[in-house]
Design a protein around this nucleic acid. Structure first.
Lengths: 378, 378
DNA sequence: TGACTTTATGTAAGCGGTTACATATGCGCC
DNA sequence: GGCGCATATGTAACCGCTTACATAAAGTCA
């Protein structure tokens, strides 16, 4: 690194006494001193410079900014003004190193482009900022191995805790967290049986209940526009919920009425077409996420299917458009905000040595709208 | 801080020679040494421990991980295995402090919940990760003063550069960046006249052209479902573009045909109702952002207005649903990905001492769809 | 073969803060 | 007045890495 200056032997020894004492005694006009300090050649002002110019020790400056009560009124104001004039900003890395606290919390989300994750992140951030922490964010793109790498990097960056999504992680990651004793939480899931604290909805239960709701409406022929369960334990759990509810009533689902895909309105359309291609088509379609649902709904309308008279369509996740389409869609609402906020509070609490290690189940509420109704007669 | 151990006088002096030499000569089974190291009482393993266990100097370990070519094959593998066994993760803060490089870039976005910002952020992150940087993210919630605070905090955290959105910032922020000589870019805008590099579409021009496109279709009665211009220079510029185009043809817009609001489909609906309440209603409605547009479109359909026969509706920003509604919507497409990617490349380039300081205008393309057509006769 | 590179490693001084411990001063009270 | 204690400041040793400089060993070449 070429920026580094030549050895600065004697720096420490040469400076303090004379300069400082001169200052203390003479108290030259502040401006003058500042200019001098500027000129002196150091690229970045440091706490030491503040101390020198203010004529105090580094310890006092440090105290003045971290716990002002420890410093006399007079020095405090003097130091403050020097800081302002010098435009000094404390160096986070140095502070982190010295205190061994980074006041940073990391999060690895599959993606930012899902509205619910975005909302959770925003809530997370608000909450953390409020408590004096910073969020360090990374994306796994639904790849466990990338999740592992990112989490590692975050730990390397000194995060004091980690927020993950889901409960299924690469084994390396679990090992890593365990051996390093990293505090973390699995968000967007509720499954007390797995390792680690979890904060989120019980995905299985949510879809179990949604399915039962449809069964109670008399439906027996179901179709699934499912989200790929690859590397997505939430989607898996939801699917499980559907199957559990159906099995309970001895209802079988025809394989050709199940289509699995990723994400997006258009994808939803395609999958929907595939599902309804096999007559007699299902009277109830359950979709795996919000955008797939919107796609299914739009396609059903394009195909002239009457909803809910001929067919009920329900989804998961309650984004605004679910309620704004010509036929508002029945769905499951989970407060992503709450997930984010709770996760933040939990971790901060633990870091501050409070808060028991407790799982938290977020409400998953069925919002019944016009897209679902009784099964058509016959 | 109670975690700190008692003064460790003599630590440095006492350790190296004897222990190390013993190791080098004796080469006891690795496992044994590891246990010992574990037991030794230090909570976190550090590079020093790795060095000690591997029987080399700290410098060698450092080199082995940062520039392996400098270390002999033999030592390299020995060190690697010790690192793995010890589960050591280098301390980012210490490294940042020593190198005075954080390999971190900060970004302050108004919100994460806008799809285009989310996409830009994701692109940003991908690109940065690829180049070995980390993204530190913050939200301003459209408040300049919060933007300032967040940016400051990011600088404190040691970011080497900053990505902002828009060109209008709190004066304190501009000052701060200037005096601290922080590298930054204004994203999502293109206006070479302002201070700082900008990367994004020319918002004014984009809507100027969109408006002209409508004028060329024969429209003369315009309505605006505008996004609030408060603290949003992009929205302002877009509005300006509309006005410029209209002024050029001497077209006046009736004040009652302008409604301003924030965000959301529902908001779009309300604003749309307000605009069309004043007969004769406009034959062309220009909306300020994607969700307002969707709202306007849905409401127009709910009201039974025939689009585009009676009225053209156009928007800004091309999110998926714009193309999936029964009447696909004409809009302006800006590649948020590109904005993010370019911003990342630019900053990384500058940091590495390449890349000239150059503004970049992203294409803003008009995507003509079914929602716009010739003005109704008469 | 000896002076001169090159290559592999070690030594120790930082990086810019924090904080334990030492010191100095002021105050209350017997 | 002297003792104890609280308050305000200073001194300097760390935090866990990197890296300039020093050193030693192994080529290279005239």
């Amino acid at each position: 690194m070429k920026g580094r200056k030549q050895k600065q032997v004697g720096r420490k020894a040469a400076r303090p006494a004379n300069v400082r004492e001169a200052l203390v005694r003479a108290k030259p006009p502040l401006e003058l001193v500042l200019d001098k300090a500027d000129i002196e050649g150091r690229v970045n002002v440091g706490l030491r410079d503040v101390a020198r110019v203010a004529g105090v020790s580094t310890a006092t400056v440090s105290r003045a900014i971290n716990d002002p009560r420890l410093v006399s009124e007079e020095l405090r104001t003097r130091i403050d003004s020097v800081i302002r004039h010098l435009g000094w900003v404390p160096d986070g890395a140095a502070r982190a190193l010295a205190t061994r606290r980074s006041a940073t919390i990391g999060a690895v989300f599959p993606t930012l482009t899902h509205g619910d994750f975005a909302r959770a992140i925003q809530a997370l951030q608000d909450e953390l900022t409020q408590k004096g922490y910073t969020l360090l964010l990374a994306c796994s793109e639904y790849k466990p191995e990338q999740e592992y790498r990112q989490a590692r990097k975050l730990v390397e960056r000194g995060v004091e805790a980690l927020i993950l999504v889901g409960e299924a992680h690469a084994p390396e990651l679990t090992d890593f967290l365990l051996t390093r004793k990293v505090l973390y939480v699995n968000s967007f899931v509720y499954n007390p049986k797995t390792h680690g604290t979890c904060i989120g909805p019980d995905n299985r239960k949510a879809l179990y209940r949604l399915t039962k709701y449809l069964i109670d409406l008399g439906h027996t022929r179901f179709g699934l526009v499912a989200q790929s369960t690859l590397n997505n334990d939430r989607a898996q759990a939801r699917l499980q919920g559907v199957h559990d509810a159906l099995a309970e009533r001895g209802i079988a689902i025809q394989p050709s009425h199940v289509a699995e895909g990723y994400w997006g309105i258009n994808e939803g359309r395609q999958l929907f077409r595939r599902v309804v291609a096999n007559k007699p088509f299902p009277t109830a379609i359950i979709c795996g996420n919000a955008y797939l649902t919107v796609g299914a709904m739009l396609e059903s309308q394009a195909m002239g299917i009457r909803v809910p008279e001929q067919m009920s369509i329900v989804g998961y996740d309650d984004i605004e458009i679910m309620n704004e389409l010509p036929i508002p869609i029945t769905t499951v609402r989970v407060s992503s905000d709450e997930v984010g906020r709770r996760a933040a509070r939990f971790l901060v609490g633990r870091l501050d040595g409070q808060a028991p290690d407790m799982n938290f189940e977020c409400e998953a509420e069925i919002i019944a709208r016009a897209s679902s109704g009784p099964a058509p007669a016959g």
